[in-house]
Design a protein around this nucleic acid. Structure first.
Lengths: 249, 249
DNA sequence: GTGCCATACTGGTATAGACAACTGGACCCC
DNA sequence: GGGGTCCAGTTGTCTATACCAGTATGGCAC
């Protein structure tokens, strides 16, 4: 039984560890929507933490929409939001699999660099802060599909650039090893002509139409955790989305 | 000088009072985006509250997007969100207005034709059923932006092809005169090269990258009411969307 | 039964203090 | 100049405690 650990070097804050445990329990179905959590005082005792620390974890989770509280009654697991219509937030791997294609990835480069003006703006960092830049070529059933340049704040995922499994789903890594769960993203799409760099990687002629997808992914706390620029081959990729009428329009 | 008050019956919590004061200061322009707030300890002293109370106010405001914090540096006023009102199901007219552009429309042709294979499939009609086909060139602030080909089942909007106001918002007409309210839509986007037809209308070179947006709009009863193919100039148009994570993924 | 109240739970607010982690600038050494 | 170290100031984490406020329950008086 993984107990909340203290004192170890490089350990995560106690409230973060508690948040992780509760996330896990919900994800694994040990806690279902509507279920009541142990009371704050009971959690304190069980994990040997103070009430304020416990409350910080719970308050965060309430803000993130995982839980809700009722004064005098208790803390409960919230129902998943009804985000009807919108397509799910998925990475390349899941996207390709859902289209019946086999995703593969070539890691072209990974390094820690200071954030450029643009990257800093998207990730809401100060210019020059350290970010991990990961460039990957993504294949679908053996064919080049997408050239992807991904930026993450280094402090959110320290040591990411040294990992050996960067050819898999980045979101899986972030979730499993860094406790970062993507919750929402803002995307823009535009049509651009392939420059030499992209054309070469994607094996098309320069000037060919590409779909440029830019995404800022946010985690449960609303912090920007990733900024991606992906160049998709225009002849192979089609983006889909559902739109819903907003109220009051 | 409105001081934070304590002890009065029915008073608001101290952290709530502090939150309101900061909101006011931002709204009245005493604090502008990017400005640094007094440090937490200074706020404590100034308002005679404890640091945890002060932090609760600031944390709330961070969650609400009014402020952001940087460890070791300070707390700052955030920039207002720019991403409001981009989403939602809107037509070209609303879309352009929300971007600060002036929409104009040239009706290139309107006629009643039998549904082709493809159109019938999208609109869920039998092949050969009568549909209204409307081709329009849409301008934004005087510049060609989008070539749009729109199909509707004739029986949903009889006489539409005879109307004189087809250069306005189609959705307004459908809503006002035919009782058709769009509720949701499925869209696909891809990057294509401009053929001669599109290039000429949009005043770009053939082969230029265009964003091809295809939309099937559905009404309140779930019936497909419209199928549109729009070719947007790649250099002028950028599509935006929000993605939300589905539960259980 | 009906109504009320005491009680024992829940989360909500608030305090004072400690130490850790991080930033940026001053300062010194080479 | 370049490269350190040190320091003051900032937010981040955490403790221990106290009392307030809302909710459910059960028992008592009527």
């Amino acid at each position: 039984m993984p107990v909340i650990s203290r004192g170890a070097r490089g350990r995560l804050p106690l409230y973060t560890q508690l948040k992780e445990r509760i996330w896990e329990m919900v994800e694994q179905g040990q806690l279902k929507p509507g279920d009541q959590l142990p009371s704050e005082r009971e959690l304190c005792e069980r994990y040997n933490i103070s009430r304020m620390t416990c409350r910080q974890a719970l308050s965060d989770l309430v803000n993130e929409g995982l839980l809700y509280r009722m004064q005098g009654r208790g803390t409960f697991v919230a129902s998943p939001k009804v985000t009807q219509g919108l397509l799910g937030l998925t990475g390349f791997t899941e996207d390709m699999l859902s289209r019946g294609l086999i995703p593969e990835t070539l890691v072209l480069s990974v390094e820690v660099v200071p954030a450029s003006n643009k990257v800093a703006a998207f990730l809401e960092l100060a210019i020059g802060e350290r970010v991990v830049r990961l460039v990957r070529l993504r294949l679908a059933s053996g064919q080049p599909m997408c050239l992807e340049q991904c930026h993450l704040p280094e402090n959110l995922a320290p040591g990411l650039e040294k990992r050996r499994d960067l050819s898999g789903s980045l979101y899986k890594i972030l979730s499993a090893h860094y406790g970062l769960h993507m919750v929402k993203a803002h995307e823009t799409l535009e049509a651009v002509a392939a420059r030499e760099r992209e054309a070469e990687a994607l094996e098309v002629a320069t000037g060919s139409p590409l779909l440029l997808l830019e995404r800022v992914t946010r985690g449960a706390d609303g912090r920007a955790m990733e900024y991606v620029r992906s160049f998709y081959r225009g002849d192979r990729y089609r983006f889909q989305t559902e739109l819903v009428r907003h109220e009051g329009e």
